[in-house]
Design a protein around this nucleic acid. Structure first.
Lengths: 347, 347
DNA sequence: CTGAAAGCGCTTACAG
DNA sequence: CTGAAAGCGCTTACAG
């Protein structure tokens, strides 16, 4: 009946079998086949017929066409994940955890990278929505706030992860960045450091600004001066030269820093590479704490102490909050998680 | 007509507009609306009607329902990407390039991680096929060969990337791993190294075995002995302790190695971390070459020389070969790309 | 216990 | 130039 072959030219496609095919073969309606295969109306269908249907389904290698099902049920069982860049390890790790959690719940995830562009973000949400995703998980870029309002207005279920906007009343799962930076600085102070600098981003992203605020608050609460020159800001992208300059500046002058907080593993990579090329001893002369882990930071002679984000928990929470909100669209959940200080040799 | 609000309790969902809605408003058939919005039968539709349709579509914020379209056209405009683990930087970079290329061509990609498990791989292909992906790009795990035959038998368009199986006559885009390893060893020999070791994987994955073969062939062609003890093999996962042991063994004995080839950036990370903790000078006492880049390898005091895979080209080729084979299922393309030696300080 | 029928939102061959 | 109609492969409210 079906011809399989490896010679495309003479090839007869193996037709996919549909509910109708099974129904015809068994001699029942497609409705009945659907009920049986979906385990609906159990006990109200004769065992014999059910068994026969299942048997034929197996024989004919039946697989349900999700597209058709989706059209009817208006549920695609798909969630869209939008990150700035999937090739960034932070996001790809997050993605993996989300993928696993979604899979457990019977959802598939489609992933898109928006970079830090508004247009790309818009286009991605449109594409995903056209594909009828049931909801979105968004690690939003800098300029997306406006378009997020559009999602809110249209009742699209979504949850923000990592990045969020304080004025936007939506689901999110994020780090308590203020507290994390605060704790990091406090730890440096406990270790006797007096002159603590920070390299952070020049950005409107709230979660990143919270890190600066935490740094400053910790200094202030410890009665230390908050010096402008100690907080260096670099751009979100292509910032390597600026980071090198920042490191140099912080280490120069009459009172060089003896403690340094780095606002991301990306900044840390560049900064540590730079420090590696100098003759400064870590942690003796300079103690370093970074945000986020990175394989790279292990290979430095003094593995870098860092504030660890609970990525797996964040991913699972985000996924489950989204699924909840898909099912019953009735509450807003906002979570700020605590970072964990992972002490290694650099501080 | 439509009520927007931020209070879910009292909220009236904004109904999505369909072709039918537009047709009714304009007073034409849905067919006509479809033609206009898809730019079909241009010139054969009166400009006025077309303009009116477009206007109303914009007014009503029409977006086509891809699910419905897919059901009808039997094209989902979706490709499935299956990798071992999306959180692995090698795969996430590849994924990003594939995403970008697919997007250019109007395709969306869904990503799944199969780890190295046969079952997960099977399940993923099933899920993706149920969702009617038009084709698959696969960086297959170790034990997937058998199931790949199933895909071949069922005429599912797919292309293997990075990993492939020599006995399976399918599309693939891979590295010429033999040649890459061969070149790496030759370079070490040129630099005057005499005792060259390698840490590779104990695996059935053909592409990884090619690396060992290239290593051995280069030695043989240079009239050097191919010593068993010089080629260490570790498992694909959780191999850090084994890698450390291997490094120790290669550096012990009467004739320690003075050159080392590492079969992946993952092996390199562990090996270099280990070497970092020893008092061996790189490259003076030990020259190192790794496969693949990794941020981590930059932070070592002697940044690691490596064989670079042309990831972007591989991703684009794989995507385009897949799209070709989706459109006209008539040829097999197999590509082995050359790696590029990126010389840095470790060798 | 079972099934006919309607319909999800599109596209397209066909007929005017 | 335009449209009625069929149909993609499902699900499910409804009627027997």
């Amino acid at each position: 009946m079906l011809i399989l072959c490896h010679h495309p030219d003479s090839c007869q496609m193996k037709k996919k079998t549909s509910l109708k095919d099974i129904a015809q073969k068994v001699g029942v309606s497609t409705a009945l086949v659907s009920y049986v295969l979906n385990n609906k109306k159990e006990g109200r269908i004769s065992k014999d017929v059910a068994a026969r249907i299942r048997e034929v389904a197996r024989e004919m290698d039946y697989r349900t066409n999700q597209i058709a099902r989706s059209l009817k049920t208006r549920k695609s069982q798909t969630i869209g994940l939008i990150v700035a860049d999937i090739s960034n390890p932070f996001f790809s790790r997050l993605a993996r955890f989300i993928e696993d959690e979604a899979d457990k719940k019977g959802y598939t995830v489609i992933i898109g990278s928006s970079d830090e562009y508004q247009d790309k973000f818009r286009k991605l949400t449109d594409t995903f929505l056209d594909r009828q995703v049931d909801g979105l998980i968004i690690a939003a870029g800098a300029k997306t706030e406006k378009h997020l309002h559009y999602l809110v207005d249209n009742n699209i279920p979504f949850v923000l992860v990592d990045r969020y906007f304080p004025r936007l009343h939506t689901n999110y799962v994020a780090l308590d960045n203020f507290s994390a930076a605060y704790k990091a600085v406090n730890y440096l102070l406990e270790k006797g450091r007096k002159n603590i600098g920070m390299i952070a981003y020049d950005t409107e992203l709230h979660h990143l600004n919270e890190r600066k605020r935490g740094y400053q608050a910790a200094l202030k609460d410890n009665k230390l001066p908050v010096l402008k020159g100690r907080l260096k800001e670099v751009a979100l992208v292509n910032s390597e030269p600026a980071i090198e300059k920042a490191v140099a500046a912080l280490l120069a002058g009459k009172q060089p820093i003896d403690g340094l907080l780095l606002a991301s593993s990306h900044i840390a990579n560049s900064a540590v590479k730079m420090i590696n090329s100098l003759s400064i001893k870590v942690p003796d002369e300079l103690a370093i704490i970074s945000f986020d882990e990175s394989e790279a930071l292990d290979l430095f002679y003094a593995p870098i102490t860092y504030m660890k984000q609970p990525l797996c928990e964040m991913a699972q929470l985000a996924t489950n909050i989204l699924l909840d909100s898909i099912e019953k669209n009735n509450k807003i959940t906002q979570i700020n998680m605590e970072a964990e200080l992972i002490i290694r040799q650099s501080a």
